[in-house]
Nucleic acid binder design. Structure first.
Length: 862
RNA sequence: GCCGGAGUGGCGGAAUGGCAAACGCAGCGGACUCAAAAUCCGCCGUCCUAACAGGCUUAAGGGUUCGACUCCCUUCUCCGGCACCA
């Protein structure tokens, strides 16, 4: 009987379910393996072949680990808060919960149809009140530690989504979700002090087995810069010597306190990574929002400065960060004293200085900073070189010399190399109380508010007497009220603000009337800790128990898309470290090993008018794609899968046509796991043939006709070794190739029972339905998952007789068969006797013969 | 501009510094068939050749080495990320 996936696959899925085969168990005597997939947002579109790639990889690894005797944890859940469901609710009035539940049911069905071995007893859903409760609980831990605070900051405002965005959600000045230009808008926000963990988030990357690109992205995002703070005293306008209060400490992420002249402005702090160029500072620049601007500005310059501030404020982020644009700025009328040479230099404001980085003010060294150079050129400010190239070459004119070199025109720094000069001048500043070594981070505090309905309410109450008061743990979760309209108000307040009955509450401290916080958490909140809830998904009185945490943490293998390299993966590391400090988790890092699946691309077909056509309308002939209806030859391209390109591949269709095992095999066989690769509707046929041929070999197996002895013993051991090693390296494509080669040989030379059993065991993790069906057919008891992974004998993976290539001067001229352990002299002799080799040796003197055992012989002649 | 990754047949891709192109797709030839599909067998980088034997070939150019797809330097192209971060 030919193999029929339509009956075989559901049969085994039902048997696995009935046997509770995928339920997690824990035996302290065995090693543990925690494999985690990035849980999906259950969208209406359903599962994507991209999801399947990552899920198949972890599924194969966990099945393999179970066969190797590990305790395996392999859970799945739903990142179910999110804008699409809410946007749909705005359009249709259907509650996001309803849409989400439907989408989850569909995802579940799809996932089960592919035969993934998830332990559904541990399913988590971020929108479940019991889950929300602990998300809010963690927020309160952050709040109590002073890591969550309110601030009014200019945030990224998406006019289309009508909500504030985190920095991480803004790409190229546009909303990552909808592409609209992002505006700046002042809003009261909740922020999380991730900056306090910047150093640890950076340092601990060193202990992770993560892709280099992701580590680099995190390092860049955190952006540690070592440098110095320098203090410039302000001498204009005539306020010097009045004494009094210092200006407020600039604190990133906070609203600048307006300086109404109630205190004396007396110094400007700057951050620089090049303190060695201090002698070259010829002017200063404050960001337009800097708190000292008002008090510094002289009456004569006031109008110009105000006008510039207003203009800067009106600019979108996109305009402000446009690199190509000309530098702009305004002079404040004030002057400051350069702390090293006491020179009086002008103070400007300009929007190329960001209020949110460093101290929001810079010393400008136009000779050695390209931005300062452009600004100085435009406004005719002096440019003074204070570093010369160490190799004596003349730096290019018309631009700044930004490399390290030797200090010149710099007083007692002259002649020092850049690192030496940095150290010396920093020490001098420190001694005089005019500066110190300082570290700055690019990372900003995390804007943790969304003005939306479909998210976790922030568990805070605002009391007129007691200010912000956390909701007591006993009153958690704060759940979402039912609403009639889901529209964002567009004023910056969430739809929750309009539900008076929900907003009105009492103060937990004094019992007086109070109002609930109406901001909700961003979608990232739930995904910050879901990997911990899987450990103990039903715990009612704690988020997870200490015991299970110690059993399973950390995650041994985390697989998901590279698009989360700096979002989710940085946020959850931050939360994890806070939980570590509080003693709730025992590891510094949550995810030991991380891998990203490569994007699955697809061929798209475009006609002469630029219209895209679906696969079903097309006939493939060799390299050409022909539109069936008209016979037109179409333009073929490889693109990301997109609705507009009609090139999406739906796993349901693939399962229906070829079956889950073929889908799984092809996903793995397509190419290297971590690289992008195109889905080829023809190439999948190769995997379908492989499955059929395996089945035929098993079905037609006849013990009586099997070859005598064990002719493929060595190949069998080699194959076990290859597949095992490939799984260890997550080289799934070559593992499949090894099994194909083995099958080819079994088909042509004949298989023993042991050969077949081994092939099926190796194949089981990849094609579990075929695996169990064949296992049963061969009369074996139980499920493959309960069978030990085959082992190999290293000695049997090596051939007794090997074929060596024979080179003459590095060029292959023949080969020779020798015993693997033949003495070198014999190999040498036989190699030189090969006729074609001898021909190339004729008349030459042999200088050297290199024999690499089991590999090659190279004869060097001249 | 900076950071990261990648460049190998018609295509997807293999190769701890040791016989480049495994495995698969497509293509070509053959078997089976009334025929087609399915299946099976053979060929399949490129140039020269009747064939044997050769020459060339892993983006380009140099280097190290007996030997380089692999290591080092320079350059080019593509993909991803960041981008006035002082």
């Amino acid at each position: 009987m030919p193999y029929d996936h339509r009956s075989v696959e559901p049969k085994w899925q039902a048997r696995w379910r009935a046997a509770r085969l995928h339920q997690t168990t824990f035996d302290p005597a065995r090693p543990k393996f925690y494999a985690l997939d990035m849980f999906p947002y259950p969208s209406g579109a359903g599962l994507h072949v991209g999801h399947c790639e990552g899920y198949t990889a972890t599924d194969i690894i966990t099945r393999w680990k179970r066969m190797q005797g590990c305790n395996v944890l392999h859970p799945m859940g739903w990142d179910a808060f999110g804008l699409p469901a809410e946007n749909y609710a705005i359009k249709t009035g259907i509650h996001p919960r309803v849409t989400t539940e439907k989408a989850i049911a569909n995802f579940r069905r799809q996932i089960d149809s592919i035969g993934f071995a998830y332990d559904w007893d541990r399913e988590v859903n971020t929108t479940d009140p019991q889950y929300i409760k602990w998300t809010q609980w963690i927020f309160l831990q952050l709040y109590n530690k002073g890591l969550a605070y309110e601030g009014t900051v200019p945030i990224n405002w998406c006019p289309s989504c009508k909500t504030g965005l985190a920095n991480e959600e803004v790409t190229q000045g546009c909303c990552e979700r909808c592409g609209s230009g992002v505006e700046r808008k002042d809003m009261r926000q909740w922020l999380l002090r991730i900056t306090r963990y910047a150093d640890r988030l950076l340092e601990d990357l060193a202990e992770l087995d993560w892709p280099e690109s992701t580590l680099a992205m995190q390092r860049n995002w955190i952006g540690r810069s070592d440098g110095a703070e320098a203090i410039f005293k302000v001498v204009e306008p005539s306020r010097v010597g009045e004494g009094g209060l210092r200006p407020p400490e600039p604190e990133r992420g906070r609203e600048w306190e307006p300086s109404q002249g109630s205190h004396i402005v007396d110094e400007i702090k700057v951050f620089t990574t090049r303190p060695d160029t201090l002698y070259g500072a010829t002017y200063m620049v404050l960001s337009p929002e800097h708190p000292l601007v008002d008090s510094l500005t002289t009456p004569a310059q006031q109008a110009a400065v105000r006008a510039y501030q207003v203009a800067a404020r009106r600019k979108s982020d996109l305009e402000r960060t446009d690199l190509a644009k000309e530098k702009t700025g305004a002079f404040t009328g004030a002057f400051a004293i350069n702390p090293v040479n006491h020179e009086k230099i002008p103070v400007w404001i300009a929007d190329y200085v960001l209020s949110s980085y460093g101290t929001g003010a810079i010393m400008a060294v136009p000779a050695h900073d390209q931005r300062d150079y452009e600004f100085a050129s435009k406004f005719n400010l002096p440019i003074r070189p204070v570093v010369r190239p160490a190799d004596g070459h003349t730096p290019a004119p018309d631009q700044a010399f930004v490399d390290d070199g030797i200090a010149v025109n710099s007083g007692d720094l002259d002649g020092l190399s850049t690192p030496q000069a940095k150290a010396k001048v920093t020490g001098q500043l420190e001694a005089r109380g005019l500066g110190r070594a300082m570290v700055s981070f690019r990372l900003r505090d995390w804007v943790f508010s969304r003005q939306r309905y479909w998210g976790e309410p922030i568990p805070i109450v605002h009391c007129p007497t007691h200010g912000t008061v956390p909701v007591p743990e006993s009153a958690l979760p704060v759940t979402l009220p039912e609403v009639e309209r889901y529209q964002p108000t567009g004023t910056g307040e969430s739809p929750l603000a309009g539900i008076e009955s929900w907003v009105k509450t009492t103060c937990p401290t004094c019992g007086g009337p109070a109002r609930r916080e109406t901001n909700t958490m961003p979608q990232w909140a739930g995904s910050c800790w879901y990997y911990l809830r899987y450990l103990d998904p039903k715990a009612a009185h704690e988020p997870w128990s200490k015991q299970v945490e110690q059993q399973w943490q950390p995650v041994d293998l985390y697989v998901g898309g590279a698009e989360h390299a700096v979002l989710h993966l940085l946020y959850s590391r931050f939360w994890h470290k806070v939980l570590y400090d509080l003693g709730y988790v025992s590891t510094k890092e949550p995810f030991k090993k991380l891998r990203h699946q490569g994007t699955v691309l697809a061929y798209s077909y475009q006609d002469a008018l630029g219209r895209y056509h679906e696969m079903s309308e097309i006939e493939l002939r060799g390299d050409d794609a022909i539109l069936k209806a008209t016979g037109e030859k179409l333009k073929v391209a490889v693109d990301k899968m997109a609705k507009t390109k009609l090139n999406g591949v739906n796993p349901d269709d693939v399962v229906a046509e070829y079956g889950a095992d073929v889908l799984r095999l092809y996903e793995m066989f397509m190419g290297e796991f971590e690289l992008p690769k195109p889905w080829d509707a023809r190439a999948i046929e190769g995997c379908a043939r492989f499955v059929k041929r395996v089945w035929r070999l098993v079905e037609e197996f006849d013990e009586k006709k099997a070859p005598a002895g064990d002719p493929l013993l060595r190949l069998r051991h080699k194959t076990i070794k290859r597949v095992t090693g490939d799984l260890d390296r997550m080289a799934f494509n070559t593992a499949v190739a090894a099994m194909m080669e083995y099958l080819n040989e079994l088909t042509s030379s004949g298989a023993t029972r042991e050969d077949l059993l081994t092939l099926i065991k190796l194949l089981g993790p990849f094609a579990p339905h075929l695996g169990d069906e064949a296992w049963e057919k061969l009369g074996q008891p139980g499920f493959l998952l309960q069978v030990p992974w085959p082992s190999f004998d290293e000695a049997l993976t090596r051939d007794a007789v090997v074929t060596l290539g024979v080179q003459v001067n590095g060029k292959l001229r023949g080969d020779v068969q020798v015993a693997r352990d033949a003495p070198e002299a014999e190999v040498r002799e036989k190699a030189m006797a090969v006729p074609n080799v001898a021909k190339h040796l004729a008349g030459k003197t042999v200088r050297k013969v290199i024999v690499v055992a089991g590999k090659i012989v190279n004869i060097v002649v001249s």
